[in-house]
Design a protein around this nucleic acid. Sequence first.
DNA 1: GGATAATACCTGCCTAAGCAGTAATTGTTC
DNA 2: GAACAATTACTGCTTAGGCAGGTATTATCC
Lengths: 172, 172
Amino acid sequence: MSKQHYQASTYKAQNSVGYLIKRAHSMMLDVLEQVFADRGFSYIQYVILSWLRDGIAVNPKDICIQFRHDSGALTRVIDQLADRGLLERVRRDRDRRKVELQLTEAGRETVEAMIPLVVEKLNLALTDFSTEEVQEFLRLLLKLNTRLQSTLDSKAAPAPAADTKAPAGSDA
Amino acid sequence: MSKQHYQASTYKAQNSVGYLIKRAHSMMLDVLEQVFADRGFSYIQYVILSWLRDGIAVNPKDICIQFRHDSGALTRVIDQLADRGLLERVRRDRDRRKVELQLTEAGRETVEAMIPLVVEKLNLALTDFSTEEVQEFLRLLLKLNTRLQSTLDSKAAPAPAADTKAPAGSDA
DNA sequence: GGATAATACCTGCCTAAGCAGTAATTGTTC
DNA sequence: GAACAATTACTGCTTAGGCAGGTATTATCC
């Protein structure tokens, strides 16, 4: 049973979290892409490189899931980065379906050079924020994401064939 | 001079506001599109209809700016909605360049029917949030958006040829 | 008031994401 | 261990957004 933060009778599109986040996302992208465009990179390309740097992701699959990017599209982006000599595909014997991505030296240098610029943009976006506000903002974003993730996971699940009838009202 | 919320030396991609917002946006879209898909609508189509309902936007231009959607792409989406008889283009004599969009009766009914479902999804996403958390979250999102908007506006400006170098502080 | 700039919308083209289907490898079950 | 299912990555096709240019209308400036 979800709280009635919004009500159909008083709902206005401009106050929707959905809208506010969409707008934030769009503008944040514009701001960050100023950093990448000059160097001939897109946001997704930077993300891949920086995630490899941080060791967050190693396989294309990881990036697909965490960044919610299309698998097919990702293959092509990885191709581009590989063509430019910024990373390499390695197939491990352990599980030969998986591809392990490794930054080359050039790739590492490229990311490292961009990170300070990205950090600068992020700080610029948060200029007016106090330390506490940033903390709280990140906490709430994470909370929302966790919730959304579990919502989507349960939707994707193979339907709860059990007696608890898939309720039309209270969506699973 | 922006605060150093992030530092290049300790920056990790997974803590970036940019990433968290991108992810939130992506998942929120997935959740909402479950509502629209069945009825043959996309998010942008719903947005147009709901904004016309609320009177937020009247001209395509308004929607372009507020929703940060491409002008060319928007024309085609409006075409689709017009073809389906959900809205009409009206040219006013006052300024014959502008197009005024008007919901038809069918259009209004369509939006009204979808709004409760959207509201439900939004509430679901915010289930774990207290009223205060939602308030704070919306406030922070708005604050970020305002800041990003002014950053982009000043970047887009024709370069401050004058001595007073583009005032980063006071946004337009 | 006539030339020039600016605005609003539309059109064509290109790129990239979304989707479905395929191949190769691994896991599972009897 | 052989058949079947699941996983991982890739490929082709479609669709829609981003971008540049075009047209009609209005605003500006001398």
